[in-house]
């Protein structure tokens, strides 16, 4: 099971857009699937994502990484770009 935590405007791709609680998609994927492929399959446009945390660690070039072993993905949108790449 993989949890995808969505923040800011990316919440619209999750189960709700309430700001006062976590917006989390519960999903699963084949171990060879990349993070980017997973997000596309969930309908999240990669160009709207500024930065990615994998299991609590800020990760560059995360879209190319396989989801194998990843339990939590945190996604922040471009207009919350304190995570400037």
């Amino acid at each position: 099971m993989i949890e995808v935590h969505l923040f800011g405007k990316l919440r619209r791709f999750g189960p709700h857009a309430d700001k006062d609680r976590e917006c989390v998609i519960q999903t699963s994927a084949d171990a060879t699937t990349s993070v980017g492929e997973l997000l596309i399959s969930l309908g999240i446009p990669l160009e709207e994502v500024s930065n990615v945390f994998l299991d609590g660690v800020y990760t560059r070039a995360a879209f190319e990484k396989p989801v194998a072993g990843v339990a939590r993905i945190g996604l922040f949108p471009r207009d919350m770009c304190l995570l400037y790449a």
């Binding site: 609590g56 660690v57 922040f76 471009r78 207009d79 919350m80 770009c81 304190l82």
Partner: peptide
């Protein structure tokens, strides 16, 4: 130009929380 004016420095709450 975006993060600080829109959300203030408290934008960091969710970020640091995600970072553990």
């Amino acid at each position: 130009s975006q993060a600080l004016p829109n959300y203030g420095t408290a934008v960091l709450i969710n970020i640091l929380n995600e970072a553990g």
